[in-house]
């Protein structure tokens, strides 16, 4: 059972806060990834605040659901959600990527409460999620396992070993959300190395496939509801998203994959998100 169980309206409000956290912590860190965290924000917020069975005060609670961000570089959204849920103080977000911070540039299991595995090298998260799902099946434990993957990441061959495994073992306790923002560092995914037709590929590996607008909260909730009820095979939600979603000058631009906003850009972004750097950094430092 999710401890928050937010409504669609509450999730939209929470997602706005997460986007403000992302911009603010990146401005402070002066390095990091901006585009992917913003494209993941809506469906990731829904997962943490409505579906994931977790206890932020007890990160290692044995009966918890597991979520893996296989795209380790989206730490800003991952850390923001952990802090907003209460795994650690909001002020820690202002230490992101700094020396001796518990918030490493890419997630480290041994440093951060709520991080289930260290990641950052792409193409490993789904295999780990498969291991948790298979282990839970062996134990007949009802836990759910979620894995957030990137579209560029699917160019890693190891992803498809895991996709094959989950289909073969009918891991219906496992769900994947693909952040299909169609951008990677070098440019547009179809031009760099096309992964289309994506739904057909997952179908071919015996997955239950859903395709949604990854920024439409009603579609997101409907997809999670179906994922949780589907039996007999794992489910993938292909979430069509926009890199940099929520900040006009970042939307759809590959250049925002791996760089942070400057203070000026951050101020502009935060204005679009209805706040200022002073206001939001003060909120984080007080939390």
């Amino acid at each position: 059972m999710n401890p928050f169980n937010y409504s669609a309206e509450q999730l939209q409000a929470a997602a706005l806060d997460v986007r403000r956290d992302i911009i603010t912590m990146l401005v402070e860190a002066k390095s990091g990834h901006t585009g992917g965290p913003l494209s993941c924000t809506d469906f990731a917020t829904a997962l943490s605040f409505r579906y994931l069975n977790h206890k932020p005060s007890e990160p290692h609670w044995a009966d918890r659901d597991f979520v893996f961000y296989s795209i380790g570089h989206v730490t800003p959204v991952n850390y923001s959600l952990l802090a907003e849920c209460g795994y650690f103080p909001l002020k820690d977000l202002m230490t992101f990527r700094k020396l001796n911070s518990r918030l490493q540039g890419h997630p480290h299991r041994l440093d951060t409460p709520g991080i289930e595995i260290s990641s950052g090298s792409l193409g490993q998260g789904l295999s780990i999620a498969c291991g948790v799902a298979k282990g839970s099946k062996i134990d007949k434990h009802p836990r759910r396992v979620f894995c957030i993957m990137g579209d560029g990441e699917l160019q890693e061959g190891s992803c498809w070993e895991a996709v094959m495994f989950a289909g073969h073992y009918h891991l219906d306790n496992l769900g994947v959300i693909v952040d299909y923002n169609k951008r990677q560092i070098d440019g547009e995914v179809p031009k760099i190395m096309d992964i289309a037709p994506l739904a057909d590929k997952w179908h071919a590996f015996n997955w239950h496939v859903l395709e949604i607008d990854g920024h439409d909260m009603q579609q997101i909730l409907a997809a999670y509801d179906e994922m949780l009820h589907h039996q007999g095979s794992p489910t993938v939600i292909i979430a069509h998203t926009t890199m940099g979603r929520g900040v006009s000058f970042m939307e759809g631009k590959s250049e925002w994959h791996g760089k942070p906003p400057t203070m000026e850009q951050g101020e502009q972004a935060l204005r679009e998100l209805g706040t200022t750097y002073d206001e939001w950094s003060s909120r984080l430092l007080a939390g």
Binding site: I117, Q124, I128, C130, K134, G135, R143, S158, A162, F165
Partner: peptide, 16 residues
């Protein structure tokens, strides 16, 4: 699929 084997094993370790 040795890459998958190493990481599936990792996942199994996470549930004890």
């Amino acid at each position: 699929a040795e890459q998958n084997m190493a990481t599936v094993a990792t996942g199994l370790s996470l549930v004890g």
